[in-house]
């Protein structure tokens, strides 16, 4: 039986009827039409589906949409405002922290979490903070540089 959920995504209210078994990632992509979060594995390994739920990074392929009822979701679409990139997005751009871009939405939201936990992270903290997000293109080095640059900007 369908359940009604109400949640806030990127500051906007959403109310929808969903099957209880619907995964949050499928809700975001197919019901809410937000295709920024990607599906890379559906086994919670790759992190491409990472979004923020009440301010904490979660893998949205590993929870149900009904579990997000009454909560705040932030996806990659909610970062830039009026065409101005968020400092983390800008750092990824400047430091060439992405190539094909598939992992990038998840990387950026994990970075947001990482920088909240470690405002001035060491390289080791950055690498461990991103260990739940797979990237096949970059070898991670420019991503690490991007996170460091974003931290510098946030601290300044």
């Amino acid at each position: 039986m369908k359940r009604t959920i109400s949640l806030t995504i990127n500051g906007k209210p959403y109310t929808d009827e969903v099957e209880p078994r619907l995964l949050l990632i499928h809700y975001l992509r197919e019901v809410a039409g937000l295709t920024g979060p990607h599906i890379g594995c559906e086994t919670s390994i790759c992190g491409a589906c990472t979004v923020m739920l009440d301010g904490r990074a979660v893998k949205s392929c590993t929870m149900f949409a009904v579990q997000a009822d009454g909560r705040q979701v932030l996806t990659i679409e909610g970062l830039a405002s009026n065409g101005t990139l968020d400092p983390i997005q800008e750092a990824f751009w400047n430091e060439h922290g992405l190539q094909c871009g598939f992992c990038t939405p998840g990387m950026i939201l994990s970075t947001r979490q990482l920088l909240e936990d470690h405002p001035n992270p060491t390289d080791q903290e950055i690498r461990h903070g991103l260990s739940g997000n797979l990237c096949r293109c970059t070898g991670y080095q420019h991503i690490v540089n991007a996170v460091r640059a974003a931290a510098g900007k946030a601290g300044a």
């Binding site: 086994t43 991103l130 797979l134 096949r136 080095q141 991503i143 690490v144």
Partner: peptide, 17 residues
């Protein structure tokens, strides 16, 4: 045949190049 079983390099596995 899944990313659970196939060992892709992760950020903390990689050395500084």
């Amino acid at each position: 045949g899944e990313l659970t079983d196939y060992a892709l390099p992760r950020a903390h596995f990689m050395p500084f190049i």
